[in-house]
Simulated assay, not measured.
Amino acid sequence: MSLFPSPTKLRSRSLCMAFASCLWFGTVCAQGTYRIATEGSYPPWSFKDAQGTLQGWDVEIANALCEKMKAKCEIVAQDWDGIIPGLIARKYDMIVASMAITEQRRQRVAFSAKYKETVSRFVARKGTPPDVSPAALKGKTIGVQRGSVQAAYLAQHYRDAELKFYETPQAAELDLVAGRLQYILGNMVTYHVGFLKTPEAKDFAFTGPDLKGGVLGDGNGIAVRKDDSQTLSRVNAALDAIRADGTYDRITAKYFPFKLM
């Protein structure tokens, strides 16, 4: 028998001593490393600034969660169409991207507790009749982001309309202004603080009622892999913590003049 401990035992002993020192001295030790996906082209939720750095409400929420979890995190941009497949393929560990919680998505990923409400609305030229029922929009041209819950809603209910799918909400907005679309459908808050505040949108407004529930989801959650219950537990605890200490409200107030929950 060797009188000297093996390299494996030495490493284990070192880790235990480091953890003990964190507890003893009250220092902040990193507890895990996470790679987090967000969309990166969906202001004000997530977008890149002039230097190419990710910014936005979801990005700040993700960073706040990582701070509470005492985890080292890397936030990356991922096209919306591939965001769930990327999570399942283990390209990252969670999605913080204002993702609507739907039954269809629950079959593929696990969701945290709801971290904001979501409402969808149509936008059209001012003076457009407020009736946006499927019968009223028969033959009308409607733009929507590909892969979104709004796209699923239109495909389910507006089969007699002409639907056009776009990679980003901004692309659909440009076509609405150019007259290539008669309506767009998307997140109400996004339109309220984004598109409808721009000079290009001066002739456009919301039309029709608030839309939510069903295929449009029950609020937004943070997605993790279904087999990753540990991360889900830590995220939910961190969400509770940022709500309790006011961090959530402080971040929200930087972007919106109203509460999201």
Rank of each mutant, 00 (worst) to 15 (best):
L216A: 04
W45L: 11
I184V: 15
T8F: 03
L211M: 06
F165Y: 15
W80D: 07
T102P: 02
L216M: 01
Y183T: 06
L23N: 08
S148L: 06
Q182L: 03
L3K: 09
G147V: 07
D81K: 14
F195D: 00
A151K: 01
P199A: 02
Q145W: 05
C66H: 06
A77F: 06
F206R: 01
V149M: 09
A113I: 08
L181M: 10
P5A: 04
V28M: 10
L137W: 06
W45A: 09
K68P: 05
L15N: 08
A135T: 14
L181N: 07
V59C: 12
D131T: 10
L163T: 04
Q170A: 15
I61K: 05
D240M: 11
E67A: 15
D131R: 07
G139V: 09
Q104D: 14
E39G: 08
E117T: 11
K48M: 14
F165S: 10
S2W: 04
W45Q: 07
K259I: 08
T252V: 13
Q182I: 04
K164L: 13
D175L: 10
S233W: 00
L3D: 09
S112G: 07
R35L: 13
L176V: 09
I75S: 02
A18D: 11
S98R: 09
G217N: 00
W24R: 10
Y166F: 15
T38I: 09
